[in-house]
Simulated assay, not measured.
Amino acid sequence: MAPQFFFPGSLRQLLVVLLKLTLSCAAPAKTTDGTLCTARGPASYVLVFTGHWSPQTFPKQYPLFRPPAQWSKLIAVTHNAQFRLWQEGAPASQGAQSFAEEGVTAEVVKEAREARKWRAVGSMYRTPGIPTGTGHSSTELLLQPRNPQLSLMVKVIPSPDWFVGIDSLNLCEHNDWRQEVTLDLRPFDAGTDSGFTFSSPNFPTNPPENITQITSQNPNHPANSFFYPRLSELPPLATIRLTRQDRSPVRHNSLSNHIQPHDTTPKRFSETPLDCEVSLWSSWGLCLGSCSKGGMRHRTRYILLRPANSGIPCPELEEQAECRPRNCPEKH
């Protein structure tokens, strides 16, 4: 076929491809359920993170020093369905791992900036850490229809690789933005560090496991700091509240914006009872006294975990019994 007949057809195909690409870039973002966010314009929110980690709600192995119970900085990302900061049941990314283990945000920021190149990520936000287990941090968020989802993480300090967070929360409902959202947060294990307790040493999980939620009975091991077999589920470790504003933020700083919340009244939860835990009995000791005159022998056990919040008290730690002939030391 002569070039003059082939060129117009190729040009038409090229124009069709360019038109489809332009339309796909301009199209509204699809949410996780397949619907489109067709809201007119952006939406501004105030995000308030509240920690509820106290000795009353989580008395087992509650960290009091070196370091005491506290929260890392909060890192949040606005994005669409093409990006995941973290996901339950999936392996942690390098960024999620470094943040869950050490509270370092450099890798998370790097991953989000890379995703921003293909417009999968809108903005990133950080708030300061909270030096106690109970307290507040907050920031303003600006979400665009193209990136209507919100994901965030806050590390539990101290812990091996535990965190609380939100995965791909969609704040756009078809043609409008949600007015207010409140979510209770419970702990997750990033699956990259092996440890049952808050103060467990750094021992990498090899090979790494998927991100899983920590529950009152999972991991099902008495050493687990969140192991409360009497509870059907753990109390909320923290809460996130998102409130839409009528105005846009006056000044937008995506990495250091911080606002004090208006309502700082602590949320009340019922106390979690912690039952006493004791060791196994020691071996019986030698007889004290003459066997023929009713000599006695003793054994002991010790407290592994003291009770709290009206939990079952500790049993007797010493027991004695009358000697029998086979328990008496032989005479030489």
Rank of each mutant, 00 (worst) to 15 (best):
S200E: 06
R66Q: 13
A29S: 15
R178H: 09
E316D: 13
E107S: 14
S256M: 09
L274T: 02
T239Y: 04
R301Y: 07
I240L: 15
F5L: 13
L74G: 02
T243H: 06
L19E: 10
L21M: 14
V17P: 02
T197N: 07
S44Q: 09
S248R: 14
N309P: 11
L280I: 08
Q56M: 09
I312N: 12
A90I: 04
A29D: 07
L185G: 00
Q97L: 12
Y125W: 08
M153E: 08
F49Y: 14
N220D: 13
H221Q: 06
T243R: 14
T239M: 13
A106I: 11
D263G: 07
S24C: 10
A81K: 15
F226Y: 12
L11R: 12
H79I: 07
L47P: 09
N147Y: 02
C314T: 02
P55E: 04
L304N: 12
L14S: 15
S93Y: 00
D161N: 15
R178W: 08
Q245G: 06
N218E: 12
W162S: 00
L234T: 00
G95N: 07
I211F: 03
P59F: 11
P273R: 03
V121D: 02
P229W: 06
E318V: 13
R326N: 12
P219F: 03
N175I: 10
E88K: 10
L23K: 08
R241Y: 05
T212G: 01
S256V: 10
R247G: 02
P273C: 08
W162E: 00
N309A: 06
R119E: 10
P222Y: 09
W118N: 12
T197I: 08
P315M: 04
S283H: 12
E173T: 11
G135D: 05
W118L: 04
R241W: 04
E316G: 10
A69D: 06
T212E: 06
R12Y: 10
N147W: 03
I157A: 03
F6A: 15
S256L: 11
F99W: 04
V121I: 09
K73V: 09
L15Q: 14
F163G: 01
L15T: 06
L152V: 05
P148C: 06
L183K: 03
L183C: 04
R268W: 07
T264N: 10
Q179H: 14
P68E: 04
T139E: 01
D189V: 00
W177K: 07
